[in-house]
Simulated scan of single mutants.
Amino acid sequence: MKKVLIVAVFFLLTMVIAACGTSSGGSSSEGAVETEEGYKLVKKDSFSFASSGEFKPFSMTDGSGEMSGFDIDVANAVAKELGLEPVQHKQSFATIVEGVKNGRFDVAVASHTITEERLKEIDFSIPYYFSGAQIFVRPDSDIQTLDDLKGLEVAVSRGSTYADLMSEVTDNIIYYDSDVVALETLNTGRHDAVVTDFVTGREAIGAGMVLEGRELLERSEQAIGVAKGNDKLLEAINEALQKLRDSGELAEISEKYFGEDITTDPDDQ
């Protein structure tokens, strides 16, 4: 009897381990609802999107937990074009891609830069805005360029492309869940520099932080993330974004938050 029990327990453990291994690989559409258009959605008639809520003015969270901001307005506008009800989910930035990949959310609308590494995990729409990384420091800093950051303490957002960029320059990297929090700590005297999106840094300075932007490090394209295999939804999102761009609504959303259009490719201006 004891031997039979041991065998049974071993069998159950084997099944659990196998199940865990299966769930970790690739994009998951298990439990997804497929629409007449061929979209795979978490919930019928809904556009479930994730954003961090901690990346002002792209996404901000009020006292009730509701998010607002540029990314949120873009997500709402795309949902309207698709005839779906927008459903927002506040999620730590570093975990959003995995959430889309595993089917927790339909899409990520969280200022994700298109990178080769992320393209291995999910697909991306056409860009909905254009930006780039910049070094931000206190006014009394001698730091000017990327080379000046070698060996210094640099704060970045966890899971961002800026973290990857800084890993090639210094081992002394401090991670935060929010770019804004990183800038706030720099403003209070901690760290040597912060590397973040130049629009975010400029907004922080405009809000009263005593910081300065130094070298611009790269140009980037930000897009909506969609799970691999959800091709019809990706195609529809691309069509919606192009329509919003052609109508001028995308630029209007940008003007609302930044006072300028960051949605047009600089090469087309």
Results as ranks from 00 to 15, higher is better:
242 Q>Y: 05
50 A>T: 07
34 E>L: 01
204 A>T: 06
100 V>G: 10
182 A>Y: 13
123 D>S: 10
255 E>H: 11
119 L>E: 15
79 A>R: 13
11 F>P: 05
114 I>F: 07
242 Q>I: 02
60 M>N: 03
178 S>D: 09
227 A>C: 08
91 Q>W: 12
162 Y>N: 13
180 V>Q: 12
57 P>L: 05
154 V>Q: 03
231 D>I: 06
180 V>R: 13
139 P>Q: 00
26 G>M: 06
35 T>L: 02
67 M>K: 08
179 D>W: 13
36 E>W: 03
11 F>A: 15
35 T>Q: 04
207 A>P: 00
253 I>R: 04
268 D>K: 08
217 L>S: 04
124 F>L: 12
82 L>I: 01
223 A>R: 11
261 D>S: 00
248 G>Y: 00
226 V>K: 04
254 S>A: 14
28 S>I: 11
165 L>I: 09
207 A>L: 11
207 A>N: 12
260 E>K: 14
211 L>V: 07
62 D>A: 06
265 D>I: 06
87 V>N: 09
146 L>V: 09
172 N>L: 01
237 I>C: 00
264 T>I: 01
30 E>V: 15
60 M>Y: 01
110 A>I: 06
44 K>A: 14
90 K>E: 07
228 K>L: 15
15 M>T: 07
47 F>N: 15
121 E>A: 13
120 K>W: 02
61 T>C: 07
20 C>H: 13
71 D>Y: 13
25 G>R: 10
196 T>G: 11
178 S>H: 10
159 G>V: 06
111 S>E: 07
225 G>R: 00
62 D>M: 05
241 L>M: 11
109 V>N: 00
187 N>H: 13
147 D>L: 07
264 T>G: 01
89 H>T: 12
128 Y>A: 00
248 G>T: 01
238 N>F: 03
97 V>G: 05
185 T>L: 04
43 K>T: 07
32 A>I: 02
251 A>W: 02
118 R>M: 04
15 M>H: 03
148 D>L: 00
198 F>R: 12
30 E>F: 13
212 E>Y: 06
4 V>S: 08
92 S>V: 10
93 F>S: 14
126 I>T: 11
132 G>K: 02
10 F>A: 12
104 R>H: 02
128 Y>S: 00
186 L>D: 02
152 L>N: 01
50 A>Y: 05
54 E>S: 15
161 T>P: 07
155 A>M: 01
257 Y>H: 01
142 D>N: 14
60 M>D: 01
145 T>Y: 03
46 S>E: 15
17 I>D: 08
243 K>F: 04
45 D>T: 14
146 L>I: 12
116 E>G: 07
90 K>A: 15
17 I>Y: 13
133 A>F: 05
188 T>E: 08
260 E>M: 12
212 E>G: 10
218 E>K: 13
13 L>N: 09
69 G>A: 09
173 I>D: 04
